[in-house]
Amino acid sequence: MARRLAVYVTRAVLAAAFMAPVYWVFVIATGYHGAAYSLPPVWRPLFHFGPLTYVWTHTHWTRYLLNSVIISGATIILVVITSTLAGYALAEIRFPGNSLYFYAILGVMMLPQQALLVPQYVAMYHLHLLNSYAGLIIPFAANTSGIFLFRQFFKKLPTSYREIARLEGVSTLTYIRRVAVPMARPAVATTVLLTFIASWNQFQWPLIMTNSAQIQPIELALSHYMQAYEANWRELTSAALIALVPILGVFGLTQRHIVNAVAGGELGQKE
């Protein structure tokens, strides 16, 4: 009994500790003016949304938010398409180079991102993709783990589905669209969610590839804002809130699926 209580308490303390910073974004953003400077620190939100409205109306957050939505949305759509197609080809179609491509994708996973930035920038420069939405989207339009996920999923589908389709003369693309993808819904959901999180949180790539405020996503805008409004904590945290809320919302609604997906589905039956 005591052991159970100890577990409960430890768990609660830990959860609180991990949540605390996110919680304080809210506390400071909606607190009174100068709450950030109070000693001892404030710990209760006051629900003053004035600063948030001020930040929202005095900077182009709608634009940045829209940019993030455009970039994430387009990336998600492209990733789902490329992952489905390549995953299907790797799982179900026999062609010379099938396994070679599999290893090539494994190879992409092993390439260290930080070491590639310079040549990637050069490539973007020569493709005239700097300062463009395309430049923020296309490099992420194919995703190694998405492909592997779909490949795994398609491999698990009984072959008889595909054979029936072949007997009925259904073309491969129709089969993928009408049968394989609908049956791989969990894989689609996982890919959409993980791509959304990764794409929304992009920072370094837009930092290097854009210098135009017109297309910069919210994280980058936030970083500029941070440098400009050094110690205006209410404004800063309000702006942070704008970037945080969509992620928190999505995570709140789908946390079980996301955590499970990250764990490779191993946690599924535990609850």
Partner: peptide, 20 residues
């Protein structure tokens, strides 16, 4: 979920509060 949550937060947004 709460232990995992920080991992999905955008770095810049949460860095702001950590600077504070």
């Amino acid at each position: 979920a709460l232990v995992f949550l920080p991992h999905v937060t955008p770095v810049v947004a949460t860095s702001i509060i950590w600077v504070w």
